[in-house]
Design a protein around this nucleic acid. Structure first.
Length: 253
DNA sequence: AACGATCTCAACCGCCCAACG
DNA sequence: CCGTTGGGCGGTTGAGATCGT
């Protein structure tokens, strides 16, 4: 008998299971993870859940004015290449940016179009585009740390054309990713909101076969460098379950 | 307080592409 | 070279939350 694939909202237990198995097998073999984890989900669904929600590197909360500006500028440059734009905003997902654009930025972009006065913007959005130095410098950060999208896969999944484009940017590298974060943090006191914290095993009846060392700390570098031949147990168990805005309201469907 | 309108965002769908046999 | 398959991406949907009247 073939079980029907589950759809819809993820349960806490599913999340936990998924995170455990990603810890085991890495975050590239989605079909493998989906099958072996016992989750009755597609690999795609697992990937989406991980990338958009469970990934430890995710930021939450409102877009900062800097991020907002960057999104606007990059969108003017690249159009709806959300994943690409997301790579320039560490901790943000394509989905998040896409949603954000739909709700906020599109409105602003339209406003800007209709009222191109330089003082009309309420959020410091520069009216520029590809030759804006701030964008060019901010968009050339492929060299060092990468956003959570760049999970260490061969060639960062870029096509050769895209790689060429990215290479062009590298030659003009000005900021490091840390500089971007510093700038963001300094400018409005914004910090990375912890995605996971203090989740106790007792609240989830799934027994994970993998218990990572409690001393192991999450490091974005090691995570991104994870390679599928040598899956690293990078996820401290007490960081598995997100606590942000879902406290007490977790879907159990 | 009730109700409708609007917004937000998690999740799905379908297409495309690269890798592999 | 061709077919198959898995993964990535952009577009879209819909349920729940929030806002306005």
């Amino acid at each position: 008998m073939v079980q029907e694939v589950r759809k819809g909202p993820w349960t806490e237990q599913e999340d936990f299971q998924l995170v455990c198995f990603i810890g085991l097998f890495g975050d590239r073999r989605w079909d493998f993870v989906a099958k072996l984890s016992g989750l009755n989900r597609t690999g795609k669904s697992c990937r989406l859940r991980w990338v958009n929600y469970l990934h430890p590197g995710l930021k939450r909360g409102k877009m900062t004015p800097q991020e907002e500006r960057l999104v606007l500028e990059l969108h003017s440059k690249w159009g709806n290449r959300w994943s690409r734009i997301a790579r320039k905003l560490p901790g943000r997902t394509d989905n998040e940016i896409k949603n954000y654009w739909r709700t906020h930025m599109r409105k602003k972009a339209q406003e800007k179009k209709h009222a191109p006065s330089p003082s009309s913007s309420s959020s410091n959005i520069s009216s520029s585009s590809s030759n804006n130095p701030s964008v060019d410098s901010l968009t050339t950060q492929e060299t060092g740390k990468e956003s959570f999208y760049d999970t260490g896969g061969p060639g960062d999944m870029l096509t050769s054309t895209e790689k060429n484009i990215e290479e062009q940017g590298k030659s003009e590298n000005v900021y490091s990713i840390d500089d971007i974060w510093k700038e963001i943090a300094l400018s409005d006191g914004y910090g990375i909101i912890p995605v996971y914290d203090g989740y106790s095993e007792e609240s989830c009846n799934f027994s994970c076969p993998l218990m990572a060392s409690p001393t192991m700390e999450y490091s974005s570098d090691s995570l991104w460098q994870m390679n599928e031949e040598e899956p690293k147990m990078f996820l401290p168990i007490d960081q598995f379950i997100p606590n942000y805005e879902h406290e007490g309201a977790y879907v159990t469907g």
